[in-house]
Design a binder for these strands. Structure first.
Lengths: 314, 314
DNA sequence: ATGAAAGCGCTAACAG
DNA sequence: CTGTTAGCGCTTTCAT
């Protein structure tokens, strides 16, 4: 008799209490699969990320998981291993098994995303990516990167290198645009240095050498991982940070404040964004879908954290 | 007609092909929940870790996920947020929804683990922890830590500090025992320095100062995170690594080889262990449980990676 | 307010 | 080899 357990069960108080007590005593837990069969709700959420080894994405998962648990959802996680085919596969596999999806996908094109029936059919929130037709939660990376360059400008730097992320990455384009915005004012010269993979072995050493050869006195990195790679190479080359070269990262990992030197970086509210994504998803799930309404896009603020890897030019 | 889709369906070839073609055309995908209701199998696995922000655990998840996908399983992940109550809760919530569990739990006591009916009822593999009554996959940390101390001894160090992890942690006890093993030979003196939380802000600075005051010429850290924290503090104090102080970590993160200086560390096959855990789980799932048989415990080798954070005493 | 019954989508067992 | 049926554990609806 499920009525007794339901919050709105039309049962007498005595009956309800009797049933509840018995359920408690027997350790009864309703079978979610069976329930899902009839309600059409699984009680599961899915989160898909490109690479769990990247602390940025790990924190996305953690945040999603944490809030989802609070709302009574279990969460499937899928690591796409930076492989587009695997990611598409993950979406198709996960979609039928969940009530909603949090998708962290910097690389799939907007068209690919919109062409996926599985996504269209299942409430989806894009995390750290804005795309027409999708609900999303993003951080204002453009403003953050502009702040970073402005900070360097204020320290007297006039020639600044930018080591960018993969061209195919949405967030990389966003970050680059933020850097470019400052350049367009004509106050600083930006040297764009290739695109580097945001992994610890993403070919940063070569980029570091290019930065050194460019004559720039400061460098803004795609993210903190890249920033660490640059610093490591600079140090190996005998170039001192920040005395001879200022470095600014982006993302702000837990590690970043503890490194030597502690990294100046654009702080992204990763945990908060993840929670916001779940909240948004949960709201969508609880609201009858309105046809034609443009989904909600939430943009969170970033802020520059000035630490020890930047200094005034000598 | 599910027979046509089943690998062993007793159907004529023509019928099977017709049905398969139709299924393909219609994009039919069996409802896993409904199937699970009758087969008793969900096709889901669960992995529970203490903290996804710790790259060690993130890699555990990634490895589990990766292998599970290969075997056709989806995986629930649960971050226990270093909270025992939450972890217990996660186990109870997840267990009924999965076919098997990979549990990464350094902190729960063996008794707690064995007293959980949910775990006893559901095939479980302990990852990075050995415990009577449970199948497990672990790395030989004891040998690894002994190697680390032996390496320092070979470099001429005679007084070596050890900054340990939380007392309640199984793996911390294992690591400490490995360090102690070398001390018992009488060739080196080990200074045990408190227990530090394996997080980036786990109170390492205090420990670093104690190390400095102890007069030790080298230090072995609970893991790479702690090692980085120590190096950071040493650097801030003007103590050069490795010239004035050698540092050895444990775990070997992707980051560790890229830091300045690159870290000498005990390398743990994290991805491999995670995969092995899923393989073991999968085997258990495919084998009728034998009553009374002691579950399989697999121990993987570690090896010391000598990089730039250790040097001979002057 | 309660009991009984139908049926979610699927597989297993049983006839034909 | 193929069609039919029962029923997994639950919620919902319809009678009572």
């Amino acid at each position: 008799m499920s009525r007794a357990l339901a919050p709105e069960g039309t049962v007498s108080v005595v009956t309800r209490e009797r049933v509840r007590a018995a359920a408690e005593r027997l350790g009864y837990q309703p079978n979610r699969a069976a329930r899902g069969l009839i309600t059409g709700r699984t009680g599961h959420l899915g989160v898909i990320v490109p690479d769990l080894l990247n602390p940025f994405f790990a924190e996305c998962c953690k945040g999603v998981q944490s809030r989802a648990r609070g709302l009574g959802y279990s969460v499937f996680v899928s690591d796409a291993e930076r492989d587009e085919a695997l990611e598409l596969d993950a979406i198709r596999t996960l979609a039928p098994q969940v009530d909603g999806i949090v998708l962290v996908s910097p690389h799939l094109s907007g068209e690919e995303l919109r062409s996926l029936d599985e996504l269209a059919a299942k409430p989806t929130v894009l995390l750290h990516r804005r795309e027409p037709g999708f609900a999303s939660v993003t951080a204002d990376l453009m403003a953050g990167m502009t702040d970073a360059v402005a900070h360097l400008h204020a320290l007297g730097h006039r020639k600044i290198a930018y080591v960018g992320g993969p061209r195919s990455s949405w967030t990389a384009r966003e970050r680059a645009a933020g850097v470019e915005a400052m350049a367009e004012s004509g106050q600083v010269e930006i040297v764009h240095v290739g695109s580097v993979a945001p992994q610890f072995d993403g070919g940063v050493t070569g980029a570091a050498d290019v930065v050194l050869a460019s004559g720039a006195s400061a460098v803004v990195a795609f993210n903190d991982i890249v920033a660490f790679g640059l610093i490591s190479r600079f140090t190996a080359r005998g170039v001192r940070v920040p005395d001879e070269m200022s470095v600014v990262g982006c993302d702000d990992f837990a590690l970043s404040g503890m490194a030597a030197p502690p990294l100046t970086t654009v702080s992204v509210p990763k945990a908060y964004a993840a929670r916001a994504a779940v909240d948004l998803l949960s709201r969508i799930l609880g609201t009858p879908a309105v046809e034609g309404a443009e989904p909600m896009q939430r943009v969170l603020e970033t802020h520059l954290v000035v630490r020890g890897s930047t200094a005034a030019v000598e």
